[in-house]
Design a protein around this nucleic acid. Structure first.
Lengths: 244, 244
DNA sequence: GGGCGCAAGTTGGAGCTCCAACTTTGACCC
DNA sequence: GGGTCAAAGTTGGAGCTCCAACTTGCGCCC
C-alpha cells in the first residue's frame, strides 16, 4: 500500500504504473490538471507537479492548449560503432545499411588547440589544428553532431575538399594516403544533459539526455585524429562487437 | 541580449552561465529563493522553478534547511569495456587497476525465460535459465547492478559456487570448462531514466541518468550468456578499444 | 452539406501564501 | 572556555488564483 509521503508522488507513481504496464498506451491522453485534482483529490499544485515530473522523465509530453500525451518510445536505432571505420560517413553508412537515408553538411576550419585538445592530440598548446564540423540529418531531422580535430601538419598533405555535402574520405583512408596506419581507435562514451546549443541543434525535447562519444584514432601511440560526437539518447543505442 | 521570454529562464540562464564559467564554483551556495526574488525581481514561483530546473539538470542540488549548492562533478571513472573479459568481476578488476577497491555480493536463481530473454538467448519461451544478480560497491556505495542470464543446460555441468562474496569464474572461463569457446561479445549501450528500484539501489540523486549495457557472449552464432548492467551516468564513462 | 466562429478546455507562466522539517548561527549562561 | 538553546533562514510540499495562448469540438448559419 506504501502510500508515499508526498501527495504528488501518489499521482506520479500511479500514472507511471499505468504507462509502463500499458493501460495508458503511447499516444493516449493523460488526464488533465483539472481531472487529476478531482480523481486523486489533490490540489492544482500537486497535479501540476506530477505532470512536470513525468515530463522530465520523458514518459509524457505536453502540447499547450491540447493536453498531455504518453510519449511513444521510438525503438532505439542501433549505431554499430565497431563497423564502417573506413567509411567517410560512418553514421550514414550504418543507417543506410538499415534502410534509412541520411544527409549531412560539413565545414572545415583552421583553429588552434585548446589545452584539452592539445592533450588529446598530444600536441603543444595552441598548435594549429584543422577542425571539421559535421551535422547529420535523417529525414531532415538532425540526429548527430560531430566535431573532428586533426593536427594541421597531417591535414596539410591532403587535398582540401570542397565544403558542403560532398564526399570526403574516412580518417583511416586519409591517413593511409599520407603513409600513416591507424592501428587502434579508442572511444569513450558518456551520457550528460545537452547544452542549450545542442538542444537547439538536435531539436531535443525536455528531459532527453545525450550520448557523448569521444573517439581518437591512433597510429601506435600517436594520436592522428580526435572527435566529439553527440547523439540524442532517446533515439539511438550503440553497439560494440568485442573479442575476448 | 536575448532576454528569453519566460522570466524564470532569465534566472536559469544567468545561474547556469555562472556555474559553467566557474564564478559559482562547485560546492558554492546558490542564492536562496528569497535572494533570487530580490536580486532578479521575480516572484517566488519563478525563483523556485529556476532552482528546480537547475536541479533536474544536475547542476545543483538542494539540502533542505540549508540551501542549494553547486554540484561537484566527480570526474567520470573510466570503465574499460574491452578489457578484463576473462576476469570473474570485470568492474572490480578494472577499478582495482585504477587503485580503487570494490566489493560485491551476488546470488543465483533458477527461473524461466521471459519472451525477451528467450529471444536474446535464442531459447524457446519459458526455457529454464539461471539468473545471477550482482551488486558492486565502491567504498560501500553501490555503483553497478548486473543481471546475468544463461541457459540452465549450460550452467548444469558447472560447479555451483556458494553465494555471497566468493569468487566465481568469468563467463569465458566457465564456458571454456564445458568446451565452449566465446568467439565474440556484443555489447549495446543506451542511456535512460532510472527506474524507481534503480534509484533506490544505486542511491541516485534527482536528474541522474544511467547507462544501461546489454552484453551477450556468443560461441559462433550461439548465445551463451546475456546480461544487463546498470551504472550511474554521473559517475562513469565507458572506454572501448577498437581496431579498424 | 460545408464552412465559420465561438465557447470550453488545456497548457505553461507567474504570483502569493502557509507550513513542517531541517540547518545554521549567534547569543546567552554556566 | 564550552555547551545549550532559541531565532532566523532555507528547502520542499501543498494550496489557491489569474492569465495568455493555443486546440478542439460543437453548434449555427449560409
Amino acid at each position: 500500500m506504501a502510500s508515499s509521503d508526498p501527495v504528488y508522488l501518489r499521482v506520479v507513481d500511479d500514472l507511471r504504473r499505468q504507462i509502463v504496464n500499458g493501460s495508458l498506451a503511447p499516444g493516449a491522453v493523460v488526464p488533465s490538471r483539472a481531472q487529476l485534482t478531482r480523481r486523486y483529490g489533490v490540489g492544482e499544485t500537486a497535479a501540476r507537479h506530477a505532470l512536470r515530473v513525468l515530463t522530465t522523465e520523458g514518459l509524457i509530453f505536453g502540447r499547450v492548449g491540447s493536453g498531455h500525451y504518453v510519449r511513444e518510445r521510438a525503438t532505439l536505432v542501433p549505431l554499430h560503432r565497431s563497423r564502417f571505420h573506413d567509411h567517410h560517413a560512418p553514421l550514414a553508412a550504418d543507417l543506410h545499411s538499415q534502410g534509412r537515408r541520411v544527409s549531412w553538411v560539413w565545414r572545415v576550419e583552421r583553429v588552434r588547440a585548446t589545452p584539452e585538445l592539445a592533450d588529446r592530440l598530444r600536441l603543444p598548446e595552441y598548435a594549429p589544428i584543422v577542425r571539421t564540423r559535421h551535422i547529420y540529418r535523417s529525414n531532415g531531422k538532425p540526429v548527430q553532431l560531430t566535431w573532428s580535430y586533426e593536427p594541421a601538419e597531417l591535414a596539410e598533405g591532403q587535398p582540401v575538399p570542397a565544403e558542403g555535402t560532398d564526399s570526403r574520405k574516412s580518417v583511416v583512408a586519409r591517413m593511409a594516403a599520407v603513409g600513416l596506419n591507424v592501428t587502434d581507435i579508442v572511444e569513450t562514451v558518456r551520457t550528460r544533459v545537452p547544452e542549450p546549443a545542442e538542444i537547439d541543434a538536435l531539436d531535443l525535447c525536455a528531459g532527453v539526455h545525450i550520448l557523448h562519444l569521444e573517439r581518437t584514432h591512433h597510429a601506435g601511440s600517436r594520436p592522428l585524429e580526435t572527435s566529439d560526437t553527440v547523439v540524442p539518447g532517446d533515439a539511438f543505442h550503440l553497439v560494440y562487437t568485442l573479442r575476448p
